[in-house]
Computed example of a mutant assay.
Amino acid sequence: MVIRLAGHGVFCLAALLLAGLGSMALGYQFGAMWGAIAIAALVVATAAALWLWFGRRRLAGAGALVAILAVLAVWWGGVSPSNDRDWAADVAHGVTASIDGDILTLRNVRNFDWRTEHDGVARWETRTYRLSDLDSLDVFTSVWDSPAIAHTLVSFGFRDGRHLVFSAEIRRERGEEFSSIGGFFKQYEMVLIAADERDIVRLRTNYRKEDVSLFPVDADDRFRRALLMSYLDYGNRLAARPEWYETIFSNCTTVVYRLARTLAPGASLDWRILFSGYLPDYLYDHGYITTTLPLDEVKKRARISAIGQQTPANEDFSAAIRSGPVATLRPSAATTTGAVKGP
């Protein structure tokens, strides 16, 4: 009796999970009308499997459930990412790069002039940099709601004063809104955006009113260059072979971790990679940012939103956000013995 009840329970749970997850996948992929039709068909098929099972035709019921799973699995495996959709303006292009000796050429560097958080003058630029001028590495975190979750951006500074920011983002279609649940069901592709700080950081500090912090990373020249090369390679690979954004396993912070681990194989997986609002704690514990001050003080000095909002549009935004308290977090030549070492 107990075994029979347990069997019924397991079968019902499997059917409910299959119907629930399958319905969500169908809904996100097919939209309202066709999604409703597909979900209805799935519910009817699952109900039929349950009817067979409880009608004492358990083998047929189990076979029907397996068949439903197989059909969904084949369909799901065929849902492929694409670079060819009607994209939202701010993610219309991913960065690609080429190198000729010391000269780095980047195509599709975003440099929008934002008027509101949703509207701006679009500018996609081709820029050149000297790799030998690579001079600094910074991590930005941007919190918009829960302090446990932050968007992560990585900025490379050059001796001519320019800064280049990389941000792994969801690639929304025009009119599409972000859904963390949708990120589990292949709703969005991933795109690597390279942008000017006056665009991508100022958008967050001045228009979205997010809580943005800047953490200078104590890294040597080899590490900075190797990490930059990893981002460039990732951008080129996405252009050739698109990938899905995944809420947990492939998002803005796990991409940072994956790239960093390529350069430092001993880096350990940490819960603060998933709860990206605590990424500064992770960086602090591993000595990637200054540890000469208590962590709470480092976080306090790293906050730059107020400075960004006070900086006139015609002033050097990158220079402004690096003035004030955050300037005391910059690694000096005297502290590079503890820097992250390159390969």
Rank of each mutant, 00 (worst) to 15 (best):
G63A: 12
G235F: 07
V66Q: 05
F140R: 00
H151A: 09
I181L: 14
S80I: 03
I181N: 07
Y282W: 15
R4M: 09
T253N: 14
L59S: 12
L295N: 11
W76K: 05
T291C: 12
L18Q: 13
W75V: 03
C252H: 07
G77K: 02
S179V: 03
P280Q: 02
R159I: 08
G94Y: 02
H8Q: 13
M190P: 03
D233W: 02
P280K: 05
D90V: 07
E246T: 06
G78Q: 11
P265H: 07
G35L: 03
L72A: 11
V71D: 02
V298N: 12
F223M: 03
R225A: 06
Y284A: 11
G308I: 00
W87M: 09
Q309S: 11
Y282L: 14
Y282E: 10
S155K: 06
L283D: 08
L295F: 15
S323V: 00
V121S: 08
Q29R: 15
I200G: 01
A60T: 08
R159A: 15
I193K: 04
V154H: 01
Y28P: 10
V43W: 09
S132K: 13
Y282V: 04
S80R: 06
A320E: 04
L26K: 08
A264V: 07
V217W: 05
D296Y: 01
N236G: 02
L232W: 12
D296M: 15
V79E: 08
W51P: 01
R258W: 04
W76E: 08
A47D: 13
G20N: 05
S332Y: 00
R322F: 02
L65G: 10
R322H: 13
M229C: 01
W76C: 01
A19K: 04
D102M: 14
E189P: 11
T336M: 15
H163S: 01
R85C: 03
L106P: 13
P280T: 00
W53A: 05
L69M: 09
I149Y: 09
L21P: 06
S80P: 02
F54W: 15
M229G: 07
Y284G: 08
L17S: 11
F275Y: 12
D211E: 12
I39D: 10
L5C: 01
A306F: 00
T128K: 12
G183C: 10
V91M: 07
I307S: 07
A320D: 07
E177F: 00
Y207K: 13
L16C: 12
I99D: 10
A67N: 01
G31Q: 06
I304Q: 09
S132C: 05
L295Y: 08
